[in-house]
């Protein structure tokens, strides 16, 4: 007890061996420190209590569990497109023809509004697969496939035209259709997210 008393005045006081008034009226600095320390620890308690209350509004575990999806693409023939729902948004999975690819690669991409080569929008070794989030970068409508002036997608809301690589070519949209994170698990399975 004696050895502790210098370090932990609280223990001494809890034991009631030394009347508080005698020790501390002579030392107002120590008293102020005590109040500040108590207030600080109390503030930490309130702050810590706020963490769960704020974090509970973040995406829950079941939502995060479907943030990554696997798609079987073995049934998608060349020239076809399927749309899957990923994180609440449509994702276009396009099996491009050789003509589509050639058209996309022939473009002088550096002159485009959102300059990007076709090779940067597909995975090396899989140029026939174009994976994009199907949300127009203008105001969020879903573009229609195989329409528009560039044989790609056309957004009916405000007339944005995308080419066979999903790049913005004409209309109000500022950027290309975004490519999500994805990987080929094997030749016929795609993991998006």
């Amino acid at each position: 007890m004696r050895s502790l008393s210098s370090r932990a005045g609280a223990i001494t006081i809890l034991e009631g061996t030394i009347p508080v008034a005698e020790t501390d009226t002579t030392n107002p600095d120590r008293r102020d420190f005590l109040y500040i320390a108590t207030g600080a620890v109390g503030a930490v308690a309130v702050g810590a209590a706020a963490i769960p209350l704020v974090d509970q509004m973040n995406a829950s575990a079941d939502t995060l569990a479907v943030a990554q999806i696997r798609v079987d693409i073995s049934q998608v023939a060349q020239g076809q497109q399927i749309t899957v729902l990923w994180r609440g948004k449509p994702v276009f999975i396009r099996h491009r023809t050789q003509a589509d690819i050639a058209e996309a690669e022939a473009v002088d991409w550096e002159a485009l509004r959102d300059p990007e080569p076709d090779s940067a929008r597909v995975k090396a070794g899989h140029p026939e697969w174009l994976i994009m989030v199907g949300v127009c970068t203008h105001l969020g409508c879903v573009p229609l496939a195989d329409q528009g002036e560039y044989d790609g997608w056309f957004c009916p809301c405000h007339g944005s035209h995308y080419d066979t690589s999903g790049r913005i070519r004409k209309g109000p949209a500022p950027t290309n259709l975004p490519v999500p994170d994805y990987a080929f698990v094997d030749d016929t399975t795609l993991e998006i997210g």
Partner: peptide, 20 residues
């Protein structure tokens, strides 16, 4: 553990505030 520390500090402060 945190609450024990806070309780000790508050008890100490309480004794200080009420000492006179």
């Amino acid at each position: 553990a945190f609450l024990f520390v806070l309780a000790a500090l508050l008890y100490w402060s309480y004794r200080q505030v009420w000492r006179d």
